[in-house]
Simulated scan of single mutants.
Amino acid sequence: MATRYYPAILEQSSDGFGVFFPDFDGCVAHGATTEDAARQAEEALALHLRGMIEDGDAIPDPTPLERVERDPEVEEFARILVRAELPGRAVRANITMEEGLLAAVDTFAKQQGKTRSAFLADAARAAMQEARTA
C-alpha cells in the first residue's frame, strides 16, 4: 500500500470539531475532541477513497498543506494531515490454509461477488483496522 497524507481543516463547533478535506468534496468527519475528530477523519477519508477506487475515479495527489488556500468564510481551528493508505500493485502470494476453511472462503467470496483474493485482502484490511481502533 502507498501512504499519502491529505490536508484537512478542523472547525470548532458547539458540540466538538468538524473536519473537511479541501481535496475531496463531500468528505467530512466530526469528533467531540480534536483527537476524536482526527480519528474520525482518517476513517472518513479511507471510506471516501475506497468508494472512489470502486467507482474507478482518479485519486488526486495531496495538496501540500502550505498551499491550501484559506476560505474567509471558514473559521479554522487547526490544519492537520490525515494518513491514507492507497492500494499498490497486486503481487501473487502462495498461502497454506485448511481445506475446509478455504472452501468456506471461496463460497462466501462468490456469494459476495468477489474473488478469493479480493475477499482475503478485504478481510485482512478489516482485521488490521479493527486492531488499530481497539
Score class of each variant (00 low, 15 high):
residue 1 M to G: 15
residue 2 A to Q: 14
residue 5 Y to K: 04
residue 5 Y to M: 07
residue 6 Y to R: 08
residue 6 Y to G: 06
residue 6 Y to Q: 05
residue 8 A to T: 02
residue 10 L to R: 00
residue 12 Q to L: 07
residue 12 Q to C: 00
residue 12 Q to P: 06
residue 17 F to I: 05
residue 17 F to Q: 07
residue 17 F to L: 01
residue 19 V to W: 06
residue 19 V to M: 10
residue 20 F to S: 08
residue 20 F to P: 00
residue 20 F to M: 05
residue 20 F to C: 00
residue 21 F to I: 04
residue 23 D to A: 02
residue 24 F to E: 03
residue 27 C to I: 04
residue 28 V to N: 15
residue 28 V to T: 15
residue 29 A to T: 14
residue 29 A to Y: 09
residue 29 A to F: 14
residue 34 T to F: 07
residue 36 D to G: 02
residue 37 A to S: 12
residue 40 Q to V: 03
residue 41 A to R: 02
residue 44 A to T: 07
residue 44 A to I: 05
residue 48 H to S: 05
residue 49 L to R: 11
residue 50 R to T: 12
residue 50 R to P: 00
residue 51 G to P: 01
residue 51 G to K: 10
residue 51 G to R: 14
residue 53 I to Q: 12
residue 53 I to G: 12
residue 54 E to S: 03
residue 55 D to W: 01
residue 56 G to H: 13
residue 62 P to Y: 02
residue 63 T to K: 12
residue 63 T to F: 09
residue 64 P to N: 03
residue 65 L to I: 15
residue 68 V to H: 11
residue 69 E to W: 02
residue 70 R to S: 12
residue 73 E to D: 09
residue 74 V to R: 07
residue 75 E to N: 02
residue 77 F to P: 04
residue 78 A to E: 01
residue 78 A to Q: 06
residue 79 R to A: 08
residue 82 V to L: 04
residue 87 P to G: 12
residue 88 G to N: 01
residue 88 G to A: 02
residue 89 R to F: 03
residue 91 V to F: 01
residue 93 A to R: 15
residue 93 A to G: 04
residue 93 A to M: 08
residue 94 N to T: 15
residue 96 T to K: 02
residue 96 T to I: 07
residue 97 M to R: 05
residue 98 E to D: 11
residue 100 G to T: 12
residue 101 L to T: 09
residue 104 A to C: 06
residue 106 D to P: 01
residue 106 D to Y: 05
residue 106 D to G: 04
residue 107 T to W: 03
residue 108 F to T: 14
residue 109 A to L: 11
residue 109 A to S: 04
residue 109 A to Y: 08
residue 110 K to V: 02
residue 110 K to Y: 03
residue 110 K to I: 06
residue 111 Q to T: 12
residue 116 R to V: 12
residue 117 S to W: 06
residue 119 F to P: 05
residue 120 L to Y: 00
residue 121 A to H: 06
residue 122 D to F: 03
residue 124 A to P: 00
residue 126 A to S: 14
residue 127 A to M: 10
residue 131 A to W: 13
residue 131 A to R: 15
residue 131 A to M: 15
residue 131 A to T: 13
residue 133 T to N: 10
residue 133 T to Y: 08
residue 134 A to K: 06
